[in-house]
Design a protein around this nucleic acid. Structure first.
Lengths: 141, 141
DNA sequence: TCAATATATCATCAATCGCTTATATATCAA
DNA sequence: TTGATATATAAGCGATTGATGATATATTGA
């Protein structure tokens, strides 16, 4: 109902593969819109120019790119700051691909540790399957 | 038109704040659906039970959670593997929050240089700088 | 058996997304 | 000025999303 301004969410901005490709290309350096388009959408007919321009608009509203005029071109560049929020959130998952902590997690699984134990019940996802633990979390309601 | 199977994209799965909150909670340990709901949506009336259950379904189809039955509960746990794709993509932005490379980038900005230079044109976003002069938000029209 | 509990699924709806075509706005070049 | 080039904006459309209320399916306990 209320719905926050999805318009400016970096999560939404990067949820589209075309926009990720744009950012991938822009990370290598500034690009004019047209050049960007021929690199990101190499095969003509895959997408129209307005569609591509609108993707640039989404990235701009998300604060992930800036642009400046240069003659009749519009030159885009990445603006990495808003990406930090996403990077920090994703960083919280790093424990799962850290061998050391993965072993810790597996240990805790073995113990059927408290449901409040960080990473418990998850590490098995990385190692393959084993028996089933039968631990049910207590639930107030 | 063709549209890839957005259904199973981890990018789309994490683009919703409720689903991120679910994952945040599940990272701390297994949770039954109801318990998860009262923790993620503490204030009643914010969201109905079916809505919440559908969010769980999205996460499940994205492979980010698994569930098992335990009596009449359904106990959920994170399945971190699909998150790796996102983590790796986001990891490509790490250069921007590395002091050393940031300085490199700023130098390249100064040069205003080759559009092929990695990270060029971006680093200024991290240093806070003068005034508010981003770029004119109303251009064109 | 029956009612309560826990959860998923169904049908529907408004909002949003990504796309298209058509058009507008600058800028360059002759 | 005129036309070509580069890019953005507008309007409309079908698909998808996230929500809802109603209902279905198990499971537990009296």
């Amino acid at each position: 109902m209320v719905r926050v301004a999805a318009h400016s969410s970096v999560y939404l901005a990067v949820s589209d593969p075309t926009r990720r490709a744009i950012l991938d290309e822009l990370r290598r350096g500034e690009r004019a819109a047209g050049e960007l388009m021929t690199r990101v959408i190499p095969r003509a007919g895959q997408m129209t120019q307005p569609a591509f321009s609108q993707h640039l608009g989404v990235l701009k509203r998300a604060g992930l790119v800036r642009s400046r005029k240069s003659g009749r071109r519009r030159v885009y560049a990445v603006e990495p700051e808003p990406m930090r929020e996403l990077a920090e959130w994703v960083g919280q998952w790093d424990v799962f691909w850290t061998e050391k902590l993965d072993n810790l997690g597996r240990y805790l699984d073995e113990q059927h540790g408290s449901p409040d134990t960080p990473a418990s019940g998850a590490s098995r996802a990385l190692r393959k399957p084993r028996g089933k633990s039968n631990q049910s979390p207590q639930e107030g309601s």
